[in-house]
Amino acid sequence: MIPIPEKPDTFYFFGTCLIDLFYPEAGLAGMELLRRQGIRVVFPSGQSCCGQPARNCGFAEEARAVARQQVQSFPKPWPIVVPSGSCAGMMREHYPELFAGEADEAEARAFAGRVYELTWFLVHVCKIALSDRGEPVRVTFHGSCHSQREMGVREEPRALLRDLANVTFVDLQRPAECCGFGGTFSVRLPAVSGAMVADKVADIAATGAAEVLSGDCGCLLNISGAMAKSGTPGRARHIAEFLMERCYGK
């Protein structure tokens, strides 16, 4: 269980490499949502990637070098909010072991302890109150494996969606099951990954939702790509973008 900190005056935003390349609107929406909670948002320009891709492939040294760049780019003791449970999990859970025995282990541990997932931060720290201005819509949510299992984020995004007056939230049949992304897993074992995402898409389709939301862009790339390829109707996007659009008209 992650202890809930006091609401800060200022915090850092870690955008993630997938957001940089594929979903910058999700990053902007996350930052905007937080700014509107009356907190100053700082985006360190030295940031890049949490290092997870290399770490997961067994390239710890390369992962550590990149992780160190992140640790050094977020020097102040402010919370670090991440619009991805997977990247947040990498930093919070795995930096301590990645830096074990290194000269900057203490610094990395302190950094790890300041990392929070966006929806968790909105719910528990900002205690965000949402007022829905959108048209009635039916949505579902896919939580990434690491957001659930490493960051303990399960109910938070669902609570946010249920708070929206005109949104009907329908949960998946198998909300805890992996969508099959798994970073390089999706290209190392495309057949297995493909079978997993096909099942996920079918689960999403069965909800009758017009949109599937997620807090993780890796899952979104995978799910939206599979939906498009299979001709499954519906839109997949980051929950931050959806919340911004519903509550602040973008």
């Binding site: 594929f22 910058p24 902007l28 930052m31 700082v42 995402v197 790509g225 498009a228 390829k229």
Partner: peptide, 25 residues
């Protein structure tokens, strides 16, 4: 093989934050 090609955004977030008036240090 089972997905469409991922579509890159037009500009990365690290570029957009500047134009949207967020502090970047």
């Amino acid at each position: 093989s089972v997905r469409t090609k991922p579509r890159f955004a037009r500009r990365p977030l690290n570029e957009l934050v500047r134009s949207r008036g967020f502090d970047h240090e």
